[in-house]
Amino acid sequence: MTAPATLAIYAGAALAEIGGCFAVWAWMRKGASALWLVPGILSLAVFAWLLALAPSDFAGRAYAAYGGVYIAASLGWLWRVEKQRPDAWDMTGDAICGLGAAIILFAPRAA
């Protein structure tokens, strides 16, 4: 699988996970209707399905690499949905984690 396809899978998984978790957050912390849980659960199911498509022979490695993408997507959510711009510390941490995720995902490995 190509790197752009892999990143697309991870980006879709991140959006689905954040959306599902936000639905629960809205219900528990913001007083939204319990009906928010229905799309939230569906979104989390899509997240799990997409993450299972990640091109790795080992689930733990796929999940570890996904963590860096999740952090970037979470900061994007913070900025776009919650209208709170990430600060320099957020961006520095994201860059460090993104580099780590790229190493885990794209490092050459013995067959």
Rank of each mutant, 00 (worst) to 15 (best):
M1T: 09
A3S: 09
A5K: 13
A8D: 07
I9N: 05
I9L: 15
I9P: 05
A11K: 06
A11R: 08
G12A: 10
A13Q: 09
A14Y: 06
L15Q: 04
A16K: 07
E17C: 13
I18L: 14
G19T: 14
C21Y: 10
F22Y: 14
A23W: 06
V24D: 00
V24M: 13
W25K: 07
A26Q: 15
W27L: 09
M28L: 15
R29F: 13
K30H: 12
G31F: 12
G31Y: 10
A32F: 13
A32I: 09
A32G: 13
S33Q: 08
A34V: 15
A34E: 12
A34T: 13
A34N: 11
L35I: 12
L35H: 12
V38E: 08
V38A: 15
P39R: 07
G40R: 07
I41G: 12
L42V: 15
L44V: 11
A45F: 13
A45R: 08
V46Q: 04
V46N: 04
F47H: 13
A48G: 02
W49F: 15
W49K: 08
L50I: 11
L51S: 06
A52F: 04
L53I: 01
A54E: 12
A54I: 04
P55W: 07
S56Q: 10
S56T: 05
S56M: 05
R61M: 10
A62M: 03
Y63K: 08
A64P: 02
A64K: 06
Y66I: 02
Y70L: 14
Y70P: 00
I71P: 01
I71E: 00
A73N: 06
S74Q: 07
G76H: 03
G76M: 01
W77G: 02
W77L: 01
W77P: 01
W77C: 00
L78T: 04
R80T: 10
R80N: 05
V81A: 10
V81T: 08
V81W: 11
E82T: 01
E82C: 03
K83E: 04
R85A: 15
P86E: 04
P86I: 08
A88C: 03
W89G: 04
D90F: 08
D90N: 11
G93W: 09
G93S: 06
G93P: 03
D94N: 07
D94K: 02
D94H: 00
I96R: 06
I96G: 03
C97R: 01
L99H: 01
L99R: 04
G100H: 10
A101N: 06
A102G: 01
A102L: 13
A102V: 10
I104S: 01
I104H: 08
L105M: 15
L105E: 06
F106K: 02
F106P: 00
A107P: 00
P108F: 02
P108Y: 03
P108Q: 04
R109V: 12
A110P: 00
A111C: 07
A111R: 11
